[in-house]
């Protein structure tokens, strides 16, 4: 079997989704760590330094390429799966109690994923592009990147969008985490419960609560008083 046949097979397609999804999840932890530096009461210096290191590290530049590639592969495979799956039941059931057998979030990864993708675009536009590409933030005489974050979150619309997206992300991960382990065959009776518990903790406690803290604390002025 060729690699291409493998990638187009149902199981191969999902293996790509699972691997890229897990890779992007690791990035979330790194991103969360970086953001938490904003809570240091040092005028945002820890965060500014951290951002500076990221942009000037060759290693991170390489990882960045893999991240974008993963994101594109994840989305592309998702679109293919969704399109194929939309054709598999030409005549619909007149009564279909699928709600009794599965959760809304497990069935609508495409919807939660689309919200997240929309947010990623806005988010990159807000921070990544000015800081990393056009250089209109963070240079001499410009607002520093910590102030930029604070300003962004003082906009209620942006804070709300951020919060909603994080909520969707948490539910997306709650299904995606354990789902990816199953897809990769790394799951059996012994680990099943541990994996889904770990998935829920990762999704809701680490990523969910972790990222939700930024818009909330900055919007209400609890964090960022030193910069």
């Amino acid at each position: 079997m060729t690699i291409k046949q493998f990638l187009y097979s149902s199981v191969g397609t999902k293996a790509v989704m699972a691997l890229t999804g897990l890779f992007l999840s690791i990035f979330l932890i790194e991103h969360l760590y970086g953001n938490l530096l904003l809570f240091y009461n040092d005028g945002g210096n820890a965060f500014i330094e951290y951002s500076h290191t990221l942009v000037h590290s060759l290693f991170i530049r390489i990882v960045e390429i893999f991240l974008f590639a993963s994101l594109i592969a994840h989305v592309a495979q998702a679109i293919r799966i969704t399109r194929q799956n939309s054709e598999v039941r030409p005549v619909k059931y007149s009564v279909y109690k699928v709600k009794e057998t599965s959760t809304w979030f497990s069935r609508n990864m495409g919807i939660t994923g689309s919200v997240i993708l929309f947010f990623i675009v806005v988010h990159l536009w807000q921070f990544f592009v000015p800081y990393r590409i056009t250089g209109t933030v963070g240079g001499e005489g410009q607002v520093n990147v910590a102030q930029e974050v604070k300003e962004a979150f003082q906009n209620g619309w942006y804070a709300a969008l951020y919060l909603v997206s994080v909520a969707f992300l948490a539910f997306h991960l709650n299904h995606g985490f354990q789902s990816s382990f199953r897809t990769l065959g790394l799951n059996n009776r012994k680990y099943e419960n541990v994996i889904s518990l770990a998935g829920s903790i990762f999704a809701f406690v680490i990523v969910g609560a972790g990222f939700a803290s930024f818009p909330i604390l900055f919007y209400f002025g609890i964090a960022g008083s030193t910069f």
Binding site: S9, S10, V88, R89, T101, T103, S106, R107, M109, Q178
Partner: peptide, 18 residues
Amino acid sequence: MVKQMDGEGFGNCTNTGS
């Protein structure tokens, strides 16, 4: 078996559990 399954027009599993 997976190849035959894919060829028969069944959809992709998304682990919903139904």
